[in-house]
Simulated scan of single mutants.
Amino acid sequence: MTTTTITPILAQWFEYMDSDDPDRVLGMIADDFVMSVQFSKGAGQSAEFVGDRAGLIGYLEQREKSVLVHHIDIGVTADGCEMVLGRTTRAGEFEASFTATAQVNGAGRVRRLLIARTPEVSFA
C-alpha cells in the first residue's frame, strides 16, 4: 500500500484491508459506526454494502483477501474527516479508482465511512 501521513486513519484502514487479516479494521470503528461502500465491477454492475458493525462484517466476509493493493494518491484531513483519492491494483495492474471519506471521533475511531470504487475511471 502507498501511504500518506496526512490521512493516518485511512492509511491504516487500507493497510489492514490489504493484509491477510483485514478484520483488524473492526478495532478501528466507533460504537456509532455507519458505512456505505459503493462497489462497481464496471459495465453498470455494482453493489452497495451498508450498515453498522454487522454490515462491515458482512462486507469483510465476501471480499477477497490479500489480492488487491490500495494506493492512496491524494489525501486531505479537514474538520475531523479524512478524504482520499486512490487506486487499487491486482498483480501490479490497475483495477479500479476509489474515493474514501472517514469521519473520525476524538478517540481516533471511525464513525462514518463512505467508499466508492469503479474500474471505469482512471486518474492516471
Rank of each mutant, 00 (worst) to 15 (best):
M1K: 09
M1R: 10
T2W: 04
T4R: 10
T7A: 14
P8V: 06
I9R: 11
Q12F: 03
W13L: 03
E15Q: 11
Y16M: 12
M17A: 10
D18G: 04
D18A: 06
S19W: 00
S19N: 08
D20K: 09
D21C: 04
L26Y: 02
G27K: 06
F33W: 00
V34F: 02
M35Y: 04
S36Y: 05
S36H: 11
Q38R: 09
Q38C: 09
S40G: 12
S40I: 08
S40H: 10
G42R: 08
G44M: 07
G44I: 05
Q45C: 11
E48A: 12
E48I: 12
V50S: 15
D52L: 09
A54H: 10
A54D: 14
L56F: 00
L56E: 00
L56T: 00
I57C: 12
Y59S: 03
L60W: 00
E61V: 04
E64Q: 07
E64A: 08
K65G: 03
L68S: 05
V69P: 00
H71V: 06
D73E: 11
T77P: 03
A78H: 13
C81G: 10
M83T: 15
L85C: 14
R90Y: 09
R90L: 12
R90D: 13
E93Q: 13
F94C: 04
E95R: 12
A96M: 09
A96Q: 07
S97N: 13
F98W: 07
A100V: 07
A102E: 02
Q103T: 11
Q103R: 12
Q103S: 11
N105K: 02
N105W: 02
G106V: 10
V110H: 01
R111M: 09
R112E: 14
R112G: 08
L113S: 00
L114Q: 10
I115D: 02
R117D: 15
